[in-house]
Nucleic acid binder design. Sequence first.
DNA 1: ATCCGGAGCACACTGAGTGCCATCGGCCTC
DNA 2: GAGGCCGATGGCACTCAGTGTGCTCCGGAT
Lengths: 261, 261
Amino acid sequence: MSEAPRPDRAADVSNPKPPMRESLVAAAFQLFVERGYEQTTVDDIVALAGVGRRSFFRYFPSKEDVVFPDHEGCLARMTAFLGGSGPTHEPVERVCDAARLVLRMYAENPAFSVQRYRLTRKVPGLRTYELSVVWRYERALAEYLRGRFAGRPDGTLRADVIAAAVVAAHNNGLRSWLRSDGRGDASAEVDHALAHVQGVFGPERATDGPERGPGADGNGGGNGAWGGGKDDDVVVVVSRRGAPLWRVVQEIETTLGRDPA
Amino acid sequence: MSEAPRPDRAADVSNPKPPMRESLVAAAFQLFVERGYEQTTVDDIVALAGVGRRSFFRYFPSKEDVVFPDHEGCLARMTAFLGGSGPTHEPVERVCDAARLVLRMYAENPAFSVQRYRLTRKVPGLRTYELSVVWRYERALAEYLRGRFAGRPDGTLRADVIAAAVVAAHNNGLRSWLRSDGRGDASAEVDHALAHVQGVFGPERATDGPERGPGADGNGGGNGAWGGGKDDDVVVVVSRRGAPLWRVVQEIETTLGRDPA
DNA sequence: ATCCGGAGCACACTGAGTGCCATCGGCCTC
DNA sequence: GAGGCCGATGGCACTCAGTGTGCTCCGGAT
């Protein structure tokens, strides 16, 4: 099920021709909310839409796909966004922006997104399907990061971890917004969540409330310090705690390539 | 499909009684590797196992479940591990240990794990199913962390992000091991990956090689430098690049709480 | 011996997904 | 304008996963 490559001709998004697709989605969602997803058969949907059963599977590889009609196009837009970014972009910031791009598409149809959210929460099969959808986004982010981190020690590991963190943060913010029935500010939610991730992984670019708390609970642990300011160019230095301080300063000097002020 | 709650009586793991289950798994895997997952029908499996078709679905809610026969027991053991941990344990370390617990169960049957890995790589349906399996682990970790971070600002966000990062790191190490046909050192792989996450999120306790390379690639943006040494305590300093160097040194001093060497 | 409950089995049925072919409507060519 | 090509659709039949039901068989308890 699912995951089928788009075999169909037009279909997908960006093709305004066939109203068939839209009428199928409309009929499907109407029945899904009326009597539930599993209680609705494909025959019910095509009967309501007034088309042949076979046509349904021409537009959607599976019954589950009708719940995520814009997924392929959304994924394509995100990969295009990542693919069209040069090496000047900071990688973590870039994937966060990609996540924001996805959110924007969700936020375009709040009512639809909320309805779908309620469905996926209730139906285990749809939840699983959504996982496979989200997984492809995560893989796209991870692949991008792997390319950016290529050659670096633990590059793929770091890429995978950051991609997972970004997706988790995005989903956290998105779901928070969806749970409010689309009434809150989706962008704010997700920005806040992504700022958290950027604070942890990215070159710091303090946004609003300083996230980040390296020490977990109150126990001993690491210390972090940063000046939250306006400059967006930052440097991160990692050093053994045991190292003498002059050694740390030396590292900073050589890294920055300039003399101390 | 999948996700069905275990309605059955014994089944699951930890019940040594029915050889039926094992013979079904054996027959299924034999056919899966012979002719592929999708080319094998449930009728084929039960014919080879010499049992009735209906019995298959008594032991496995779906055809996909036979590929992950120990999943429920594994998840139960992990949740028990997390549930039986008091507040003395450091949360991030705890979930990393939970991930190591899962790895150990994978590593118990290297041949089986590798076979399954090859299957899930090849068959989209199984890949999707595995996602739903992994998702439950991730949710268990996240729920545990949510409890530990309760009341803290952005506690659920932090919990979700860390859980996702831990799972991603675990999977990265696990898959690296699986790709080596189970010949490498699984624990070392996963320990290394989890150390990365612990270095980022946990109270610093760098294990072996210092992970973490915050700066992007060679482009503008962050720069990273660190001294690779033997001390296991690591400090991370973050500062605006525009800040004068004395300011950075001051931050380090106050953070470390000691005088320069 | 009888009763009983659990385990297995056979059968029938629903519903998703697929392959195949007929049809229809537009459009191009001669 | 007739014929033919082609893409879109509909209809039909088929496979296979998964489920409900009722029967049988077996082992233990009374």
